[in-house]
Structure formats: C-alpha cells, structure tokens
Design a protein around this nucleic acid. Structure first.
Lengths: 151, 151
DNA sequence: GAAATTTAGTTAGCATAGCTAATTATATTC
DNA sequence: GAATATAATTAGCTATGCTAACTAAATTTC
C-alpha cells in the first residue's frame, strides 16, 4: 500500500525494511505491554529494573539513565517509584554524590514473573508458525541485534 | 548471562528468543524515538497519524483506538492534540455519533518527513552489516510479522 | 411513537514518564 | 579555602495511559 511513495524515496527496499521493522517493534511491544501491566509496575520501571537484575548488578543513577537512554531527572523519578514499591534499594558508595542502586529480592522476583508471563504470550504466538520459520526467526534476531548495536 | 535461569524456565530456547525479541524491540524504538522527537509530535500522536496516513484513509475514533490498542478516552485526547496541531481534521458521518478522522496535507507531510528521518538512522545502521545479512534480514521480517499477527 | 437501552465520544481525575531549568550536596582543582 | 565540576533531586511543563462519569445520538422495546 505504500509502494508509490516507497519507490520515490531514498533506499527503496531499505526504506521499506526500516519501516516494517519499526512497525513490527511497535506492535510487538504494544501486545506484550498488556501482559506487563499485570505486574502493576510501569513499563519504564520494569525496563530499568531489568537492567539492575539482568545487566550485571548494582549501578549509579547516571549509569542507569544512560543505559535506559533517559535523562537523569527522569531516571530519578523512575527509581523513586521502584524504591517506593520495594523493588530497588538505594545504597551508599565511596563517592558521596553517587547512589548505588540494587534490585531487592522482591524486585528480582517481580521481574522474573514478568518475563515468564511475557514468554507465555510469545510462546503461544511462536507456536503458530512452523518449526523451520521459528528457527529463521532466531536467526533474524541475531542480525537485528547487530543492527541495533550500530544504531 | 541469563543462562542459569533460562534453563530452568519453560521453553528454553523459546524463552530466550522471546526475551531477546522483547529487548531488541525496546532498544530499537528507544533509538528511533530520538529522531521522532524532532517532529515535535509525540510518539502516540505519530503512531495514530500513521494509521490515518498509511492505514488506508479516514476512520472513526473507536476504530483508531482499536488499531492503536488504546482506550477511547486516550485516543480522544491524542486526536485532540493532532487536531490542535493541524495534522488531523474532524469530519461528520451519517451516524451522528461517529467522527470521521482524516489526516490533513500538513499531517501527511509531517509523517513522511518522520519516516524519512527514521530511515536515515536505520539505513546507516543497516549499512554496518554485510549485504548478504541485510538481504536475510529483509526476508526474515516476514516471519516476525507473522508471529506478531498471532500475538 | 415515547421510553429504555445501547453506542460513540468527551470530560474529569489519577498515575507514569519524558523533558529543561534550577537547586543541593559532595568532590575536585587551583 | 575558594572556585569549579559532577551527581542527584526538585519543580514545573507536556504527553500518555487508565477508569468512572457524562452527553448526545441511534436503536430497540413496548
């Protein structure tokens, strides 16, 4: 349906690829968001929490903000919510200005539950395609990750 | 790094696939969001606008809300913003309760500019992988789209 | 055909999340 | 020790999500 315009714009096929990737990412997250809502934790909080749980331990607020591509004040409030909910703990560091942010046991548990719910939905969707296609999809993810690292 | 837990949870590989897909989608959108911000139009407004421009013409508010997986009051406000910015026009239908939402020329132009900016970023990233991999990526998007349709 | 119900959209009110600018507290530099 | 730099927070704006309550129009029921 976008043929007419795609042909005239830079890249042709590349343009279409970018467009479809973008659209696919939007729709994927929109669906999974529904399941994530069950955790009672907002999407940004959940994403920040995942950095602390899966990203290899405690960090400062600034590091977390950078990892999440968000400004420090924004991260400050996200962390405030996580602390209020008992999912993250604030600790001290040698540098008195920096905070040490660490997931609590509860935070780790909540995150793992979220991952499990998410995979339930995705696994169901993955079951709708053939084994072969599923293998190809895994391959896609590799390429996709490479592209994203260079984005 | 998540090996220990992945092995114990349902699906094994499927779990990992789901997880990586989720993560890839998050990071992809996070990067592209930076470019989208240049349009001065919020992400939800931009997404709704794209349905009107690329999704095959005018719709009612309810239809738009459904397409965007959002509740009617939320879409009502998103549309209010688009109308205020002169990107969307409200029209009448036979059914006096329904509104006919249509992108204006300005709305169409803004959306196309956004797409162009987005593809600039993605095209640059796509250039970082080999021609062959890029071809594969293009092919594999279909599988991704199939899975998402079944989500 | 008037009353009741259903449907579409909006308004109101709450929470999260993004931003910039300004403030506070601690480290570092001169 | 004073000036500067850095880390985080606070304040205040906009946007986006929700539910509940309301308005207006269409449909159904009697």
């Amino acid at each position: 349906m976008t043929d007419v315009k795609s042909k005239r714009l830079a890249g042709g096929e590349t343009f279409e690829t970018a467009d479809r990737l973008h659209s696919a990412a939007i729709h994927l997250l929109r669906r999974l968001r529904v399941r994530d809502r069950e955790s009672g934790v907002g999407p940004s909080q959940l994403s920040a929490l995942s950095v602390l749980v899966l990203g290899g331990g405690p960090r400062s607020l600034g590091e977390l903000a950078e990892a999440e591509q968000v400004r420090p004040p924004t991260m400050s409030r996200i962390v405030a919510g996580l602390v209020r909910a008992g999912l993250v703990r604030r600790g001290k560091t040698e540098d008195g200005r920096r905070v040490r942010l660490e997931a609590t046991a509860k935070g780790t548990r909540i995150l793992e539950q979220g991952r499990r719910r998410r995979v339930e939905s995705l696994a169901q969707a993955l079951a709708s395609i053939s084994n072969e296609d599923r293998g190809k999809l895994r391959e896609l993810i590799e390429h996709l990750e490479k592209v994203i690292r260079n984005l």
